[in-house]
Design a protein around this nucleic acid. Structure first.
Length: 366
RNA sequence: CCGGAGGUGGCAGAGCGGCCAAUCGCAGUUGACUGUAAAUCAACCGGGUUUUCCCUACGGAGGUUCGAAUCCUCCCCUCCGGACCA
């Protein structure tokens, strides 16, 4: 694979690369590419994970060493699950890692080649060297900057109630340096902290990490739209994200076919409207992540079956109301049912099933 | 620690001795209507129950009262102000 091909594969379907030039020269330098993405141990695996794993597959194919940090300490700081480190730590190994593997399988990535790092073990091993890095990051970053970064926790700034919550972004930035990562990966919601890390890098005497950000799949419920300073309609991503507090907004990887059908059918999906339409969003980013076809089965009276070779054609028909939401939803649901099959199978295993039930119990009371 | 303001159901926020399981709103659930969803309308929306009703509830513990979310006492917690320099 040429450097150019590697670059294209690594950056494929990303929302943002900081910066493409830096990535290019990193690839050309021949330095081993070390990637990481941090995952807070909260909530169940949903279709966003499968989308993420498509990116992981790209990275694996490009010869990047992929790491996933099971961020149990961050989970504790963010008061997720039952608010204890023990539960976060336990859940990381039992449910979380397994669900990530299942999502990887669904997306065609190789779960065995993902290096899972458990935060608590890693910090223990690094000892005070880690905390020194965290403090260096904290010293390099102003308080207001750090507060602004706390949006990465999926919380509003007004929810930042204790001092520990300011440690979260500092640790996340420190993780990048401690893991000796040169490609830091996350959803676009995490960009603030990556910028903090990049700007702190010089003070730590570290190489600026390259930051790659993937799209966030829209939740299935109606998005909250606001108008920005330019009068443009924007979506509140934090509210629009799939979230466990709105169970109907997400399709989980182990949902059974009936649940998938129900959730997709109940999704917000205005006819002819492409913008801020979660179903179209999923079709574009998830289904057509790689070149494929999508067949819509519909009765003769609605136009008969039709197969789309790419997203653009489908979008065009949808916009012109030649493709009805109902027909599209059925196709999307069927696609998901098939796509997530391996995950459902994976979770038939008794111990994994028990782990799933455990996290359902834990998230229900949040 | 001192002074001030507060702690009410998932959130937000009324009530301020009986008519309060607790106004209104948001969220949520269900049904009607649409070839989907949304919007709209209706019902529900602490738990048990079809209603009567019973239980648990308005930060915690006591108390006053025929009767307390509402008054009193103590405690816990949150928010704002309080150094110095001007």
């Amino acid at each position: 694979m040429t450097n150019e091909e590697k670059f294209i594969l690594i950056t494929k379907n990303l929302e943002e690369v900081l910066t493409p030039e830096e990535l290019k020269s990193l690839i050309e330098s021949g330095t081993p590419l070390r990637h990481y993405i941090g995952m807070e141990i909260s909530g169940k695996g949903h279709t966003g994970w499968v989308f993420l794993m498509h990116k992981i597959k790209d990275l694996q194919d490009a010869g990047v060493q992929v790491q996933i940090l099971l961020a149990d300490w961050h989970t504790w700081l963010n008061k997720k699950l039952d608010g204890t480190l023990e539960t976060a730590k336990k859940t990381a190994g039992s449910y979380f890692k397994e669900a990530l593997k299942a999502a990887a399988i669904c997306a065609g990535a190789d779960p065995e080649k993902i290096n899972f790092v458990l935060g608590s073990e890693f910090y223990e091993k690094m000892g005070s060297d880690y905390w020194a890095k965290m403090i260096q990051v904290a010293k390099a970053t102003t308080v207001s900057r750090m507060i602004r970064s706390t949006t990465i926790m999926g919380r509003k700034e007004t929810e930042i109630s204790d001092t520990a919550m300011l440690i979260y972004p500092a640790m996340q930035a420190a993780d990048i340096f401690a893991l000796k990562v040169n490609i830091a990966h996350a959803g676009t919601d995490q960009r603030n902290v990556h910028v903090v890390a990049r700007e702190a890098a010089a003070q730590l005497g570290e190489q600026k990490p390259i930051a790659i950000h993937h799209h966030l799949l829209q939740g299935l419920t109606e998005p909250i739209l606001t108008t920005d300073e330019n009068g443009k309609r924007v979506m509140d991503m934090e509210a629009a994200k799939m979230s466990k507090s709105k169970p109907e907004s997400a399709v989980f990887i182990h949902d059974n076919p009936e649940e998938i059908k129900r959730k997709v059918n109940n999704a917000f999906c205005p006819e002819g409207e492409v913008e801020f339409n979660p179903i179209l969003d999923w079709v574009k980013h998830l289904i057509f992540y790689n070149p494929t076809t999508l067949t819509i089965c519909r009765p003769e009276k609605w136009g008969g079956d039709i197969t789309y070779q790419n997203y653009e054609d489908l979008e065009k028909d949808y916009k012109e109301k030649k493709l009805h939401p109902q027909d599209l939803k059925i196709a999307v649901a069927e696609w998901l049912i098939a796509k997530l099959e391996p995950a459902r199978k994976y979770f038939e295993n008794p111990s994994r099933k028990a782990a799933l039930e455990e996290i359902e119990r834990l998230t229900a009371r949040e």
